[in-house]
Simulated assay, not measured.
Amino acid sequence: MNKLDLAKAYKAYYTAPTKPELVVFEPISYVTIVGKGDPDGATFANATEALYTVAYGVKGHYKKLEKDFTVAKLEGQWWVDGDPRTALEVPREEWHWKLLIRIPTYVSAEIVEKARTTAMAKKKELKVISDVGYESLNEGTCVQMLHVGPYATEPETLARMEQFIEDNQLRYCGLHHEIYLSDPRKIEPAKMKTILRYPVEAVEVVIG
Rank of each mutant, 00 (worst) to 15 (best):
N2Y: 11
L4K: 03
A7F: 10
K8V: 06
T15C: 11
P27H: 12
T32K: 10
I33F: 11
K36S: 12
D38G: 06
G41Y: 13
G41Q: 12
T43W: 10
F44A: 14
A45N: 15
A47Q: 12
T48F: 12
Y52G: 01
Y52A: 07
Y52M: 13
T53H: 10
V54Q: 09
A55L: 14
K59F: 11
G60M: 15
H61N: 13
Y62N: 03
K64R: 14
L65V: 12
T70E: 13
A72K: 00
E75G: 02
G76K: 06
W78P: 01
W78M: 04
W79R: 01
V80G: 00
D81N: 10
D83S: 07
T86R: 14
A87I: 15
L88D: 06
P91R: 09
R92T: 10
E93S: 14
W95N: 03
W97T: 01
L100C: 07
I103F: 07
Y106D: 03
A109S: 09
A109H: 05
E110G: 07
E113C: 06
A115H: 06
A119G: 05
M120P: 02
K123A: 15
E125R: 12
L126H: 08
S130I: 10
D131E: 15
L137D: 02
G140Q: 08
T141Y: 08
T141W: 08
L146P: 02
V148T: 07
V148Q: 07
V148N: 03
V148W: 09
Y151N: 04
Y151F: 14
A152P: 05
P155F: 12
R160M: 13
Q163L: 14
Q163I: 08
F164K: 01
E166G: 03
L170M: 09
L170T: 00
Y172E: 08
Y180C: 07
L181W: 03
L181C: 02
R185Q: 11
P189E: 06
P189Y: 07
T194S: 03
I195A: 03
